[in-house]
Structures are given as structure tokens and as C-alpha cells.
């Protein structure tokens, strides 16, 4: 019983059923991969990226962050600049007409926060020194809370605001 005879006999061997399972699981994972790739890069369900950097100590002193709030870009498009700090969002409410497309820009002037806009896919980490950006289309009237979903200190549970989406004046 020598070791060399063993080493020569050694080989990669898997049960035939297990081999099939390997193939099935790889196909499954590739299917998921393709699906999320399409959603992310073709259909517009994208995650936040590297937007821009700011100095958290001074960012609130100069435009656009010295006047947080909504900007009407025309054509139903808006930009909303929201500053997060312990324990509030500034502005506390944002009002837009139904059918508008709002791009949210967030930054923090103290610790990390989160920005979770209910019933939408806007869910961002808000990090001092960074700007987070995502866009959402409001197709329905109603009130949508934005909630801080990263622990930011003792008053964290109270930190939220709301987007008020107003129905068309014409009632259309």
C-alpha cells in the first residue's frame, strides 16, 4: 500500500446526479444574473452610484445646499436637495404635482443616515462627504413618508419627512 499508487488513482469524481445538480444550479444563478442585469442596465432600475463629493463641514454654506428644497427644472422634472442631520431632514416636506419626476440629492452634515421613500425604490445610504442620488416618478397622488433607516443617534426613530403628491388641479 504505497502512497504513490493512491495519488495516481486520485481523480476528481462526482456522483452523476450531483453533476447534474451542479449544472442546474449554475443555470439558475445565470438566470438570476441575466434578469437583474436587464432590470438594472436596460429598464432603469438602477442603484445609486458615485455622484459627487462634498465637505460635510461646509457643504451647507454654498449652493445648492445652502437652500435645501425643491427646484423646478421644467417639463415635470424636479430636483430635490435634502440635507440630513441629527434628527431631521431639511426640508421636512416636499410637495409636487402628480406625474412629476423628482431626482433626490441627499447629503449629511453630521453622521450617516438613510433615506427610505415609502412605496418606491428610493432607498439610499446618506453619508457625510458624499452626495446620494436617485430619481423617482410619482404617478399617483398621495403622501409618501421618507424615513431615516440608518441608526444616527438617540433621536433616530423620530427622523422622517414626507413627499406630498398633489392631484391635478383639473382633476384629470
Amino acid at each position: 500500500m504505497t502512497e504513490t499508487s493512491h495519488d495516481e488513482a486520485a481523480s476528481f469524481e462526482a456522483d452523476p446526479f450531483e453533476q447534474r445538480w451542479i449544472v442546474v444550479s449554475l443555470i439558475l444563478l445565470i438566470a438570476f444574473m441575466v434578469t437583474v442585469t436587464i432590470a438594472g442596465f436596460a429598464l432603469g432600475f438602477q442603484v445609486p452610484g458615485a455622484e459627487s463629493r462634498v465637505d460635510p463641514r461646509t457643504v451647507a454654506d454654498s449652493p445648492p445646499w445652502n437652500e435645501p428644497g425643491l427646484r423646478d427644472l421644467g417639463g415635470g422634472e424636479y430636483a430635490a436637495y435634502v440635507i440630513s442631520r441629527q434628527y431631521l431632514f431639511d426640508p421636512r416636506t416636499i410637495t409636487v404635482p402628480v406625474g412629476s419626476s423628482v431626482t433626490f440629492y441627499l447629503t449629511s452634515i453630521d453622521v450617516q443616515h438613510g433615506f427610505l421613500l415609502q412605496n418606491t425604490n428610493v432607498n439610499m445610504q446618506v453619508v457625510p462627504g458624499e452626495v446620494s442620488r436617485l430619481t423617482v416618478d410619482f404617478d399617483e397622488a398621495g403622501e409618501f413618508d421618507y424615513i431615516c433607516n440608518e441608526f444616527c443617534g438617540a433621536g433616530h426613530a423620530a427622523m422622517f419627512g414626507s413627499v406630498i403628491v398633489e392631484a391635478d388641479e383639473g382633476g384629470a
Partner: peptide, 18 residues
């Protein structure tokens, strides 16, 4: 597949982000 798809559909239902 069922559970994954149901969450994926929630993503789709909640609308685009760009």
C-alpha cells in the same frame, strides 16, 4: 424561484430609479 420572483416583481411595481 417563487420567492425571488415575488420580490423582483415588487421592485418592478415600485417603478424606475433613473
Amino acid at each position: 424561484v417563487l420567492l425571488w420572483l415575488s420580490i423582483y416583481l415588487i421592485l418592478i411595481a415600485r417603478g424606475v430609479t433613473i
